[in-house]
Amino acid sequence: MTIVLRELVQSFLTFLERVGLLVRFALRLAAILPSGLLRPKPIIEQVYNTGAMSLVIIMTCGLFIGMVLGLQGYDLLTRFGSEEYLGTATAISLLRELGPVVTALLFAGRAGTALAAELGLMRATDQIAAMEIMAVDPMRRVVLPRFLGGVIAMPLLVSIFIVVALFGAQLVGVEFFGVDAGSYWSQMRSAVELSDIREGLVKGLVFGVACSLIAVYEGYNAQPTAEGVGRATTRTVVISAVVTLILDYILTALML
């Protein structure tokens, strides 16, 4: 029993230590943020790398999530004879929950792992050390633009995901099942409020900060070996997914 207790305490202390290191890393990023914003070019490049390069997967998944919502929503709503509310139901579930959460999970899998692996390899091949020796702060030159690129890209990706998904649901509901196109869009417009859109974008932004921070932290602090880089990418996906879902609950509770 004491062994179990000791292990538990030990795990908890390790967890606290990791959180502390992550917070210190985040504070350091925050401290160099103003000077980093003065150089927009590398940030724009990273918005392209993390955002534009994730578009295909985001749009494909958005389309299919929308189509599934169309199917399930139509099936459910016809039981109550209110299939004209399909647009409203789809839009609200996408704006509030599915859009930001699924985008964040996809972002962690596509862009997060790429970021972590890239930084880990830069560490393993001494590129980070070389910058240090050249008196260039790698946090400022390499980490900050990648972090900001992710933060900027995420709300944009969330918006694109939601728009594509709405058309996916429309494709199934209106084109296949014959829900009236006018009621699909007009019910949506009358029921969706600005606060729903705000909730989606705020979640997107918060998830963007969390997922990007986890990816650059894990990559930058990866053990400089093949195994270390592999572990960093895995941890990026796993931690990002768990943190996203926990944050989602907290944000939902706060914004309801």
Partner: peptide
Amino acid sequence: YALRRRMGMLFQNGALLT
């Protein structure tokens, strides 16, 4: 950093930015 600007270092594997 100011001191390092007066130094150059050649790494074992080159450490070029890929």
